[in-house]
Design a protein around this nucleic acid. Sequence first.
DNA 1: TGGGATTTGTTCGTATGTATC
DNA 2: TGATACATACGAACAAATCCC
Lengths: 78, 78
Amino acid sequence: MSIDHEGPVPVYRQLAELRREAIERGDYPPGRPIPSENRLAQEHDLARVTVRKAIRLLMDEGLVQGVQGHGVFVTERP
Amino acid sequence: MSIDHEGPVPVYRQLAELRREAIERGDYPPGRPIPSENRLAQEHDLARVTVRKAIRLLMDEGLVQGVQGHGVFVTERP
DNA sequence: TGGGATTTGTTCGTATGTATC
DNA sequence: TGATACATACGAACAAATCCC
């Protein structure tokens, strides 16, 4: 929760951090998608492009993977 | 007809207005669906997502209701 | 009984333009 | 100048429900 629109940290970085924490907490078991982009946009009252920018960071880190028409899934790591 | 792609009014709002007028004219009697999303997209040469966005406005107004696998119907008002 | 076509619902992917700081 | 953020619009794929033969 609680994204600061005033501070120096970009919104998309704050959102990425929030999701990273949720993932590392184990909120999303492998095989289950994280909340959809539209869902996240709605919940945080953000534009979808901004949400995507946040998720893009997590993708670049290899933490999650997007699958068109399905969702974004936590990467399986053995 | 005639959607203006140049003006300041978004395409999806123009389309919503066109359908709203058609509905209020009584073009679609209760029990009959309005043209399908693909049909509207084809007629106006628009993407289906854009058509959906227009219909979504009418749904939010309570003017129509979507039925998955069936169609979009004018809401019955006694 | 079943399968295919139609239709709405959902999701990620991409691009452009605008405004602000 | 560049980064951030929003709105719009299109594309693509999949899911689910309904209808009809």
